[in-house]
Computed example of a mutant assay.
Amino acid sequence: METLLSHSFDYLSSTSPQKIRKGLRQVEGLLAQICMSKTTNPANKRHSMLALGSTPPPSSPKKLTDLHQDPAYREFFKLQQSFQWNVCMRLISCLERLLGKESNGTNDLLVIQTLELIQGVLLLHPPSRELFAREIYMNLFLDLLDPQNCPAIQSATLLTLVTSLLDHPVNTRTFETLDGLLVVTSLFKSRTTSREVKMKLVEFLYFYLMPETAPAPKLTTSATNTAILGGRGKELAAAFADHRRRETINTQAGGEQDGKTRSTEDKQSILSKYLNNVQDLVEDLKEGGGPFGVGS
């Protein structure tokens, strides 16, 4: 796995669109191998191949609850704890370089693909979300929500932004500090914003208004590694769940941040400064009418 990551990182650091695309495909292939099940019954596989000619049966997605039992996932998680092999960091660096290039069809597709891979990595390795407590990285999302960018980039950015904020109130505080709500609501109010993007913006606002839960106590590095690499499935599952819930205040982000959680009412008060009729969104959310089906 280290060899594959090393090759993909070399391609991602290139200035050539062709090499960047190859690096992104290699990362995508790795994530697909981790997430997709393989046929384990030879008889079933032989029967399927006979029925379909020479085409092997399609793989099926693994359940999230089963991932901790997979050796490939365990190895991937272990490597992501290291700065040298952290995929999210490399994708962020690639995204920064892509943003520095002239906007065109080829570059836009690479940006979208990079954003989609960041989503996948953040779901497979939740601790990488801590990177977005830093303003320099959160600002990338806000730059991508510029009205001049194509709707596909804006939509992909909103989904990746949600993934970066999941279970991490500190990241949400960074988003608020950088006037992220102003960026989002301004895009929503703009007449040039496509209908598809406006729908994604409404979904994001529903997500933002959800009440936050207090983060679990931070695990030490040694305790984290012990839980992840201890060899017993229940320990890994518990550690994985803790990582999805825990919150870390990253003092390297330019000083301590407000790590306090906020209720729906708190967020309603903040959002009301930028958008009218927020009360309607809140009532819809509490009645379970939002896109996430969340009730009170």
Rank of each mutant, 00 (worst) to 15 (best):
S8H: 00
E2T: 14
K62D: 03
R25Q: 13
L50I: 05
S37I: 08
Q69C: 04
L31E: 11
P58G: 00
Q69Y: 10
F76L: 04
I34V: 08
I34S: 05
S37H: 02
S14Q: 13
K22V: 14
S59C: 11
S6P: 06
M1D: 07
H47D: 10
A43T: 08
F9I: 04
K45I: 07
K63P: 10
E2V: 11
C35K: 14
G53D: 03
P58A: 05
M49G: 01
A43K: 08
R46H: 03
P71S: 02
M1F: 15
T39Q: 11
A32Y: 12
M49D: 03
L12D: 13
T15Q: 06
E75L: 03
R74C: 14
K62Q: 05
R46C: 01
C35G: 10
Y11P: 14
R46L: 00
P58M: 00
R74E: 12
L79W: 00
T40C: 12
F76D: 06
R74M: 11
G23R: 11
S37K: 15
E2R: 08
S8I: 02
S59H: 02
S8K: 01
Q33I: 11
C35S: 15
N41G: 00
N41M: 00
A72K: 07
S37R: 01
R74Y: 06
Q26W: 07
I34H: 03
F9R: 03
S16F: 06
V27Y: 14
T40L: 04
T3D: 04
P42F: 05
I20Q: 13
A32I: 02
Q33G: 06
D70C: 09
S16D: 15
A72Q: 08
A72P: 13
E2Y: 04
M49T: 15
K62R: 14
S13E: 07
T3W: 02
Y11L: 13
P17H: 10
S59G: 06
S6I: 11
L64R: 14
K45P: 03
S8L: 00
T55M: 07
K38D: 05
T40V: 14
S59E: 05
L79N: 11
L4M: 03
L12V: 04
T55E: 06
Q69N: 15
L64M: 09
R21I: 09
T55F: 07
Q26L: 11
L12W: 06
M1Q: 12
T40Q: 09
Q33R: 15
R21D: 13
T40K: 09
P56H: 05
T3A: 08
A43W: 01
F9T: 08
T3N: 09
P17K: 11
